[in-house]
């Protein structure tokens, strides 16, 4: 049994680092932009301010890393949820393509958006 070329270790690394950054960073971002500003608990920043923050290369780098890793976190977890939760392991190939393919496409879109800002 030789599985040294298995992609699982790499995928798991992406999954777990994604889970960590998602836990650390996403709640505050969703709280501000998805809950607090829409419900008028806090005043949303002006366009000029947000644009300036997003233009900073460090912000863009962090946002790209956060988006890509969080998407790979989703891909890996959702893949196993479909395998075990819905017993769909026999459709492993389309599931893998959908999950990790989705994460790759999402990461490319994130990179494009952040680079053309």
């Amino acid at each position: 049994m030789n599985h040294r070329r298995s992609p699982e270790p790499l995928l798991w690394m992406l999954f777990s680092s994604g889970g960590m950054v998602a836990a650390l960073m996403l709640p505050i971002l969703l709280f501000l932009f998805g809950v607090a500003f829409p419900l008028d608990w806090l005043t949303p920043p002006t366009h000029a301010h947000l644009f300036a923050v997003l233009r900073n290369p460090l912000t863009r780098l962090v946002l790209f890393g956060l988006s890509a890793l969080a998407l790979f976190h989703w891909a890996h977890r959702f893949r196993y949820t479909l395998y075990d939760g819905l017993q769909l392991k026999r459709y492993a190939v389309p599931i893998v393509v959908f999950c990790y393919g989705g994460a790759v496409v999402g990461s490319v879109i994130a990179a494009a958006l952040l680079l053309t800002l």
């Binding site: 049994m1 030789n2 599985h3 040294r4 298995s6 699982e8 270790p9 798991w12 075990d84």
Partner: peptide, 14 residues
């Protein structure tokens, strides 16, 4: 390592 890190080893665990 070979048995443990095979797909039927640790990676199946969620």
């Amino acid at each position: 390592l070979a048995v443990l890190s095979s797909p039927e080893g640790i990676w199946s665990c969620t």
